[in-house]
Design a binder for these strands. Structure first.
Length: 429
RNA sequence: GGAGAGGUGGCAGAGCGGUUGAAUGCACCGGUCUUGAAAACCGGCAGCUCCUCACGGGGCUCGUGAGUUCGAAUCUCACCCUCUCCGCCA
């Protein structure tokens, strides 16, 4: 959520910033609504003030044993007037809230212009794609020939966009997650967390998935009277919300959290995209990094967090590049995002494997995550960051494709071998 | 699932129809004292929001929502959550 004060104080500046995303802010409608809301608020406050002071008078009169009947008569019509005014105000407030919750975050000045991913800017590359003097195969061909991937079975069990992994490939998948978790927890200073995979509407509103992107979520169908629950689309949701409704002391920040969870996405609107293999699934695992930081430190933290995610790829010896997302490609809640793209020989291109964002105070305002700034004394919103460190399914794809051998086997990256009992090579049974 | 208890400020914990947005303690901030620190003492200290250049003032919030009342943290109802005991169970 944007700072309403900023929106009021500098509507043109806000509109200009949002226009970079291609979002057209209807300033007229906003300020009209805001003005009516304010008038309604003033009216309601005045009526309430009158009611309160009259009631106080009645209380005093009664305690002195005076007759309060005439005082009660004076107050008779107040209730109805107040009721009407309150109804008008809450209708306006609801409309305004809906509008505010639909606005994307403001972009940081350093975000490059551009409407779609073609305008993203490469920041740096790391590692050289391996030269393969044999016919390179994609991860589906490799995994199926190793008898480790059964998409047909997944289709029968659940439907499209699900996968079944078996044998050493299932173990490799597990080893990847374990390796990442250990790395972040032991070397990068994150606190490991185990969190719920089902969360409430309020929680998803806090991180910005709701109310706007409900069609991308899986929602549990239960009885009318049961509380709503949604499957998490990323561990960012439960992890970041751990800071919600809290006021941190300065010394408690930064708070750095890591979790390995499955993620569930309906992938509405992505029909026809990445239909082959493990790239785009309804269910996939991800190790997620979240930082809750002091506002002045959030851009430094973004660089560090991106480095933590990149470190995973470096230790796995996978070639990758870092890309700064352009205005039009930056997500709803983010002020600035770096993507890590890993080299996939099977596709002959770099593909997203991590996305690291600074949401500044956007999520913090929604979920009331605050800290006590010693220089101000009053609570202020914290800044929140999140990044994949990294997507496990896509890491498996990258390992299979980059470590494939001419004979059809796959070498195991050395950092993963301890997790697999020393296994160095996966071969067909 | 059954029975009971409870949800109040950063934390602990009073209040149980009327000058209570809330006693007290701890924590925190400022000051006195001290070479410095601690202790002691003095003072300050919930959040959101509206009006005002400011001084200051108003409104809302005691789990959430509805209700009773001139007036609700306090009474009623529903829901959510936590704890204890019993049952069931990975």
């Amino acid at each position: 959520m944007l700072d309403a004060r900023q929106l009021r104080g500098d509507p043109d500046g806000v509109a200009r910033n949002l226009a970079r995303r291609g979002y057209r802010l209807d300033i007229g409608r906003f300020s009209e609504l805001e003005k009516r809301r304010k008038d309604a608020q003033v009216a309601v406050d005045a009526l309430r003030n009158e009611r309160n002071s009259r009631s106080r008078t009645i209380g005093q009169a009664k305690s002195q044993g005076q007759d309060i009947a005439p005082l009660l008569a004076e107050v008779e019509s107040l209730g109805a007037r107040l009721d009407g005014a309150e109804r008008a105000m809450s209708a306006l407030q609801a409309e305004l809230d809906a509008l505010l919750l639909d606005l994307p975050n403001l972009l940081h000045d350093s975000v490059p212009d551009g409407g779609d991913e073609s305008a993203n800017v490469e920041i740096r590359r790391h590692g050289e794609p391996r030269r393969m003097d044999f016919e390179t195969r994609d991860h589906v061909a490799i995994a199926e020939s190793l008898d480790g991937l059964d998409l047909a079975a997944a289709g029968r069990i659940s439907g499209a966009r699900f996968a079944v992994l078996t044998g050493p490939l299932a173990s490799l998948h597990r080893a990847l997650a374990q390796f990442m978790l250990d790395l972040h927890q032991r070397e990068h200073g994150y606190r490991e967390a185990y969190v719920p995979y089902l969360v409430s509407r309020a929680t998803l509103t806090g991180t910005g998935q709701l109310p706007k992107f409900e069609q991308e979520l899986f929602k549990l169908a239960r009885g009318e009277s049961d509380p709503e629950l949604f499957l998490i689309p990323t561990a960012e949701v439960p992890l970041t919300n751990l800071a919600g409704d809290r006021i941190f002391e300065a010394a408690q920040l930064p708070l750095k959290l890591v979790a390995h969870t499955p993620c569930f996405r309906s992938e509405a609107g992505s029909h026809g995209k990445d239909t082959r293999g493990l790239i785009r699934q309804h269910q996939f695992d991800k190790v997620e990094l979240v930082q809750i930081v002091r506002p002045a430190e959030s851009y430094q933290a973004l660089e560090e967090l991106t480095g933590h995610a990149a470190r995973v790829l470096e230790l796995l010896e996978l070639p990758y590049r870092v890309v700064a997302l352009c205005a039009g490609d930056t997500g709803f809640g983010s002020a600035k995002t770096y993507d890590l793209e890993v080299w996939l020989p099977g596709q002959g291109k770099y593909r997203e494997i991590s996305s690291c964002s600074n949401c500044e105070a956007f999520q913090a305002r929604r979920m009331l995550a605050r800290w006590r700034n010693p220089e101000v004394g009053k609570p202020e919103p914290v800044h929140t960051l999140n990044g994949s460190g990294v997507a496990v399914g896509r890491a498996l794809v990258a390992v299979l494709e980059n470590y494939q051998q001419a004979d059809g086997s796959v070498q195991v990256p050395s950092v993963l071998r301890p997790y697999l009992g020393g296994l160095a090579r996966i071969t067909a049974a």
